[in-house]
Amino acid sequence: MSSSPDKVIIVTGASRGMGKSMAEILLRSSDSCKIVLVARSGDRLQEFVDSLTEKEKARVHFVAGDLTDAKTLDQLVDESVAKFGKINSVIFNAGILEPIAHIEKIDISQMKKLFDVNFFSLVELTQRLLPVLRETAKQDGVPATCVYVSSSASEVRYDGWLAYGSSKAAVNHLAMDLDAEESLVRAISIDPGVVDTGMQVNIRENLGKGMKADAHKKFIEFHEKGQLLKPEVPGGVCALLALKGVPNDLGGKYLEHCDESLSSFQFFGKDTA
């Protein structure tokens, strides 16, 4: 599937880690695509924009805000359309991991907050975007794209990860249902693997206390043995899916970033660590 030369792509959670790598890869992969970045850390987004060339700056807009706030969602959609005229693709990358805790001790209020961030804000943003995505798809003659960043925790047990894992399972279902319901939108959910980001630092230094010692040790060893993926590896897959579009036969699926069916979207190669 070929990419439109002037796609407009939203990236959430774009101030650091995989989100930032996605923005960098999109700018490197296309001379004409426009990018809208959103995150709570406005200073980090500004630093990223300041690091760009003047030509690149003209292709980037950012919105600083919390995606669980309806005002941020409205601002994101309104400013994206006002600035660039349309929206072709969205990468739903923002998410949180806390609380990590066993069922008998988990703080339900924290778990609800996690679901607000990891799932309900995605549903609400998808709802707000659908009219624009449909219209853009009609104008450009190609389906719009929604890429949801998921996790292996959506289908594999990690000790103490009830909240995060169940939220990501819900995200997989969101992608599946959206793709089935919308003829003008292709959706996919991607497992990025174990990535060298701030989330992993937080697991090693703080959140691991909610896990059994042997389970926590595995995450420490991922780091010590150099087994963490660079953010640009799975980030590149998500970025190129947003840029090129999700093939019809992959619509609605949950796939590992290194799945063979995604070989044409491997920006750095699936074995890069």
Rank of each mutant, 00 (worst) to 15 (best):
S2A: 10
S2N: 13
K7A: 10
G13Q: 13
A14Y: 03
S15H: 08
M18G: 04
G19A: 03
A23S: 13
E24G: 04
L27K: 04
R28Q: 11
R28E: 08
S29E: 06
S29P: 01
S32W: 02
C33G: 10
I35W: 03
R40Q: 09
G42M: 03
G42H: 09
L52Q: 14
L52H: 11
V63N: 07
D66Y: 05
T68H: 14
T72A: 06
D78Q: 15
A82G: 00
F92V: 10
F92L: 14
A94V: 01
G95Y: 03
G95K: 12
E98R: 13
P99T: 11
H102Y: 09
I103H: 06
Q110T: 00
M111G: 07
M111S: 12
L114A: 06
D116H: 12
S121V: 12
V123K: 05
T126Y: 01
L129N: 01
L133D: 04
R134E: 15
E135Y: 01
A137C: 02
Q139N: 14
D140M: 00
V142Q: 02
V142D: 00
A144G: 12
T145C: 12
C146L: 14
C146D: 02
Y148R: 03
V149K: 02
S151N: 10
A153D: 12
Y158G: 11
W161A: 08
Y164A: 05
Y164I: 07
G165V: 06
S167M: 13
A169E: 07
N172F: 05
N172D: 15
H173S: 14
D177T: 15
L184G: 01
I188Y: 01
D191N: 15
P192S: 07
Q200T: 12
N202S: 11
E205N: 13
L207F: 07
K209I: 14
K212N: 13
K217N: 12
K217G: 03
E221T: 08
F222Q: 09
G226C: 00
Q227I: 00
P231S: 09
V233R: 01
P234M: 00
C238A: 15
L241K: 10
L241W: 02
A242C: 07
G251F: 00
Y254T: 00
E256G: 14
H257G: 03
E260L: 06
L262R: 09
L262E: 06
F268I: 00
T272F: 03
